[in-house]
């Protein structure tokens, strides 16, 4: 089950904890994976860990030119058209709404919402022709529940769920599925910075009684990328230990 042999994938934000684990798991299922991210050294390290099934395509999704060229570069590096796109890259610029600067609103929307959509759009041509494709967007629990200090981030993540549903309806008849995975609180470099008091408060709201692991997000992505998930489209799969049941 969940065999991706012969398939190609692009994972954005592959230098992060979640993105790196997604790339590793897709590769271990047999896919050839292109890793994109801003930190070239870190990308090389992840690629080296994966071995021959990984290629590196550095890119900065804050830069529209980088976004415009990324799918083509990935397909060249992979030596074939893209089967699986994982829009994982994201940034945060947290601030209370009253203090949120225009540029911090815009930067988060540009990367998390707009760049992800453009990558999806640019990958459709090949997928339509081959009547097969998987677009998997990493959104967030806060796109559904909201979170103080994250008006920009939650707007972008909610928007991602919205366009995923529209696109899913447009391309379902061509064998292309578009889905979201919404992580809850996951152990990453970002959440490591929380102090014990903050963590305790968080855990009180998580029925599972623990934070999630990035490999648990990767497992959800692998499922949605597989042939077995062909009948699942326009959905958001919440991976959050029960902290929100939607």
């Amino acid at each position: 089950m969940f065999d991706l042999a012969g398939k190609t994938a692009l994972v954005t934000g592959a230098t992060g904890g979640i993105g790196g684990d997604i790339a590793k798991l897709l590769a271990s299922a047999g896919a050839k994976v292109a890793l994109s991210g801003t930190r070239a050294e870190r990308l090389q390290a992840v690629a080296a860990e994966i071995g021959k099934n990984a290629v590196v395509v550095p890119g900065n999704l804050s830069d529209p030119e980088s976004v415009a060229g990324l799918i083509k570069e990935a397909e060249e590096a992979l030596g074939g058209q893209l089967d699986i796109l994982v829009n994982n890259a994201g940034i945060t610029r947290d601030q209370l709404a009253m203090r949120l600067k225009d540029e911090d609103w815009q930067a988060v929307l540009d990367v998390n919402l707009t760049a992800a959509f453009k990558l999806a759009r640019n990958s459709l041509r090949g997928m339509m022709k081959r009547r097969h494709g998987r677009i998997i967007n990493i959104t967030s629990i806060v796109g559904v529940t909201g979170n103080p200090g994250q008006t920009n981030y939650s707007a972008a993540k909610a928007g991602m769920i919205g366009w995923s549903k529209s696109l899913a309806q447009e391309v379902a008849s061509r064998g292309i599925t578009v889905n979201c995975v919404a992580p809850g609180f996951i152990t990453t470099a970002m959440t490591d910075e929380l102090d014990d008091g903050q963590k305790e408060k968080l855990l009180a709201n998580i029925p599972a009684g623990r934070m999630g692991e990035s490999k648990e997000i990767a497992a959800a992505v692998l499922y949605l990328a597989s042939d077995e998930a062909a009948y699942v489209t326009g959905q958001t799969l919440h991976v959050n230990g029960g902290m929100a049941m939607i």
Partner: peptide, 11 residues
């Protein structure tokens, strides 16, 4: 044809 077919035909 549906609208997506026409896009594909043009492609």
């Amino acid at each position: 044809a549906d609208s997506l077919d026409t896009v594909e035909l043009v492609m």
